[in-house]
Design a protein around this nucleic acid. Structure first.
Lengths: 339, 339
DNA sequence: GAACGCACCGAAACCGGTTTCGTCAACCAC
DNA sequence: GTGGTTGACGAAACCGGTTTCGGTGCGTTC
């Protein structure tokens, strides 16, 4: 373990003072270009790397991205967390940032955790996953004047930077796809509308149905596979059972498929089911679920980049992006029976 | 944003000097018990919390646990990462520690990442997931004299602290279970033997077979679901096709089940399959996979606690624990046909 | 009663950086 | 030639802690 190379080392190496070297590296205007170049070169040569935490004690910045995972229901089952983290950390380490992760068991504990991370300066900003339509975290961070980036929008996005997947477009595509197959009774099994994504996806379904000239059939507020199964049961027991079903999440779709099987319906033939997420459970099924896959690595990458920019002072209005989920054709959908 | 409560505040509050207060809080022997109590009380009262990063600049400790995820093949597909993180962060934050996560695309990049985190003091120690039999990370950290805890053992565990799940016992149980059902030809589809867990599980299978007085039938080196499917194909095409199959991972089992279905075999009836992991894919299947589930939250919790103890100076020999995977009965196994 | 040892605490240096402030020389205008 | 800017840097304070060092008051000892 050789001693770290410190700023003082760089100072003696260049024959300058500590302060001058520091300002040279940080782009202060009162250092001559020649000196800046000299310092840069020497820094490179002897392999100087500033100690982020030493900087942070004065600057208040720790070069670290915060991510708080709320472990209630949904978040506990994040199949793509690894991919998401990969995206974040890749973008972060490219700029010498790191990722600090915390978890919370409830919403309240989550909010406390944000405050704790802020006061302990463990993070300079946060990525907020799985936004709610009315999100208390947004209120909290906005009040605290602390930078953040949303993964998904909220109802009131004033002064917010966000990155979102156009789930509404995917759902619309799903309707179009089924309608083109010849389906006329297409139902939607939706998630809990406290989540923004849930209402967005529902909107997309509605739009698609209107476009296709069909009348919607909607049930919402579902979360688990069991919910999905129950919802489909109810639909099939109704007056006009659907021939096509679009689910807001793969989890719901998996449940729906299960209850079809229980009734002896051949999915993809007797009934069509489309999900959303591109989850592994969906792909492990036989036949694999037709679904819309989200590139979680890309999402994480962009979110991290945007957050770092936001922390750097970029206007939040410039930090708003969307990406599309892409159709992954499986074997759970097709023409309706009799076509 | 009110200003942080700093050590100086606490000093003026108690009428002591900064240094004395610091030593009082850190248990130095040259402070009278009365003073220590007084400082503790005042600290509690005004809500003082030391700024970890400020401490760390002098002490070299950042009160942070490091976790590097290697994203090659396996790790990218960690269904339980959220659970694992939950365990870690819960134990960590209970002692005012945090978790720093990084990812790496390859082994080499992984090793570099460890060095980077060490020199930047982003972590005081590491949890090493998914250990190899011969693990270069162990060599690296041991050389650097940096504390770590293994999730799983390595071949050479000298001076190592570890936590492991007794996969061998689970596999042995699996054999016993199938043998009790009446199976006599029980095959094993194993994973890549560079991983310790793979050889351990194989050992368990071997032990179980010997106990049951049966002769083993082994194929190893498999990773993906496709591998599992292909392995089972080969077994079924062999001279004495097995009636029971034990897979080292759920992923392999999912593949195996798939190829059974393709052949028209009814899993759980015509052939029995048991997995290991307790993965969501396995549970999403119809019928759900019989498997051995691992409590990832508990694993993360213990690993974090052990690492903190290790960093605190506890002898690694005292930090060695195992836990068992528990059988989760699904519908993919039962008596062999004709019983 | 002076010398000694010890328990207890304050002062100050220190960790590795950042930032403020002041200085000095060179340049400019008049 | 004088005064006022300006550019470029050094010195020193600072951030919030930790740790070393030294000094005080008190009880012992001879």
């Amino acid at each position: 373990m050789t001693r770290r190379i410190t700023l003082r080392d760089l100072a003696t190496e260049t024959g300058l003072s500590k302060g001058t070297v520091s300002r040279a590296l940080n782009g202060y205007p009162d250092i001559s270009p020649a000196t800046v170049a000299r310092v840069r070169e020497a820094s490179e040569r002897i392999g100087y790397r500033p100690l982020a935490l030493a900087q942070s004690i004065r600057t208040g910045r720790s070069r670290s991205i915060g991510l708080v995972l709320q472990m209630e229901q949904h978040d506990a089952q994040r199949p793509f967390l690894a991919e998401f983290l990969r995206g974040i950390t890749r973008a972060a380490s490219a700029q010498d940032w790191t990722l600090t992760v915390a978890t919370a068991e409830s919403e309240d504990e989550g909010l406390e955790t944000y405050l704790r991370l802020i006061t302990e300066r463990k993070a300079d900003g946060f990525i907020l996953p799985r936004t709610l339509r009315q999100d208390p975290r947004v209120a909290l961070l906005r009040d605290a004047g602390f930078p953040f980036v949303l993964f998904g929008r909220t109802e009131d996005s004033t002064e917010c930077a966000w990155f979102d997947i156009r789930g509404e477009r995917a759902m619309q595509q799903a309707v179009t796809r089924l309608a083109t197959f010849g389906h006329r009774r297409i139902a939607f099994i939706g998630a809990d509308s406290i989540y923004t994504y849930a209402t967005k996806r529902l909107d997309g379904y509605r739009t698609g149905m209107t476009e296709a000239g069909l009348s919607p059939c909607i049930t919402t507020g579902h979360a688990t596979a069991e919910d999905g199964a129950a919802a489909l049961e109810a639909l099939l027991d109704g007056d006009a059972p659907p021939t096509g079903v679009i689910c807001a999440t793969d989890l719901l779709a998996v449940g729906a498929v299960r209850s079809c099987r229980a009734r002896g319906l051949k999915v993809g033939h007797d009934i069509s089911i489309i999900g959303y997420d591109g989850s592994r459970e969906g792909q492990a099924m036989e036949p694999p679920l037709t679904t819309f896959a989200v590139d979680q690595v890309a999402a994480g990458t962009r979110l991290a980049e945007m957050l770092i920019a936001r922390i750097g002072g970029t206007d939040p209005h410039e930090l708003r992006e969307t990406a599309d989920a892409v159709l992954r054709e499986g074997g759970t959908d097709g023409p309706p029976p009799g076509n």
